[in-house]
Write a protein that binds this DNA or RNA. Structure first.
Lengths: 223, 223
DNA sequence: CATTCAATCTGGTGATTGTTAGATTGAATC
DNA sequence: GATTCAATCTAACAATCACCAGATTGAATG
């Protein structure tokens, strides 16, 4: 990198951020971290990569100052270095969706049936949830729910969903969400719920997309 | 790139956008294109790189669908494929500024004197310009001014400024702007104006930053 | 002190990228 | 048709990067 503060020096620094966004794996890690802070082990498991590779990618993200670390005994917790990083991820993903037809097509194929997708806008969904007209469930792992979730949402992790069906009022309309448009957990939740006779839909929003549109996020500070 | 529409396939597409943002030269080209459509020759001149290299970088940007082309005789005009691309550039630059101290430092050193920078917020500057309390001048090349400029701004290209000083009311307060925070043209304009006895300041905003904050852009459609 | 285990570091390989320079295309003009 | 010139294509090079696998660090635990 150049040393004098000439013009290209400025672009080189911005390119550092760009570089860290140029690897699919790093983007996946970034999206996982947008759900809340996690250890390297958790990240490598959830992103399905070797822990040593995850560590290398996280190092790159840390050198670009997009993530920070915190030591807790043997574990090192990674987190985004600010809410603007999650916002950047959303902006990048939305731009990709807007201009890359292949991506839009792949995303459209991901939803199992068209009527599985809740078409309501965010504000009116929020209102309905507030009034109890729909039950909004968060099917991510409980730790991610605790780190921040949609208002009025109930934590119903996907792998506990089947055991906890009784917790849901049988005649209610259920709307599930997960980590975002790229995540399949809410799809699987809808499939399961419909099999069991529930009226269920999903939204593609995760907490990042929700927050990026200016809506509030609730947190459980159980420290 | 993977063919099946599995999960990593989605991230790979977003990473295509990230990759195109990972080179300083490409970012510089992108910022230039945010000022309006330009030919390869113009871009290579303004970015100070070989035309063949510019062409190669533009090819990469086109393959990521961030730019589009239009043929006009011997010339090929490049333009951003949407306003969201300019927005993405602003978001990326702001995130870099927020987290990379080195970048913030280099930017701070670029302004010749602290009092050269107009600290007013955008709305009140707009109001003052509307009322004629300040003269806002656009020191970019005229073609860029015509492609879109701040409301109430007057085109005063830097290389014509000295000849056209008489056009400016002598007792007015002048505020200059150019392509954005990385551009030095407004600095040089302020230096020149102060040498000639004017009361002059600059703002770091370009049209992208102005538009990104939700404020209007005026265009001269002289087709 | 030895063991365990999360996390990082190191070296190595194949693939990709930025840059340069020469050759080529393709539309306009003489 | 030959020429001009913007723009792209091609080949080649060094540099960088993603990924893998083995070795190492460092905090906790027995």
């Amino acid at each position: 990198m150049t040393i004098n503060p000439n013009k290209s020096y400025l672009y080189e620094h911005v390119a550092r951020i760009g570089k860290s966004l140029s690897s699919p794996k790093r983007l996946e890690l970034l999206e996982l971290l947008a759900q809340g802070e996690k250890t390297v082990e958790t990240l490598s498991t959830q992103a399905d990569i070797d822990m040593r590779l995850a560590s290398a990618h996280l190092k790159a993200l840390r050198e670009a100052r997009l993530v920070e670390t915190r030591r807790d005994g043997k574990y090192i917790h990674y987190r985004l270095s600010g809410p603007d990083v999650a916002q950047l991820w959303v902006t990048l993903r939305e731009t990709a969706e807007e201009h890359l037809v292949e991506l839009r097509l792949a995303l459209a194929q991901m939803v199992s049936a068209p009527d599985c997708l809740c078409t309501e806008d965010r504000e009116s969904l929020l209102l309905k949830a507030q009034q109890g007209d729909v039950v909004v469930i968060d099917v991510r792992p409980a730790a991610e729910f605790n780190a921040g979730h949609l208002p009025f949402a109930r934590s119903m992790p996907l792998d506990e969903l089947e055991q906890r069906l009784a917790d849901l009022p049988a005649d209610s309309h259920v709307v599930a969400y997960c980590r975002g448009p790229f995540c399949v957990m809410s799809d699987e939740a809808v499939k399961l719920l419909r099999d069991k006779g529930f009226s269920a839909q999903k939204i593609t929003d995760g907490v990042c997309e929700w927050a990026a549109s200016g809506l509030p996020i609730e947190m459980d500070n159980l420290k």
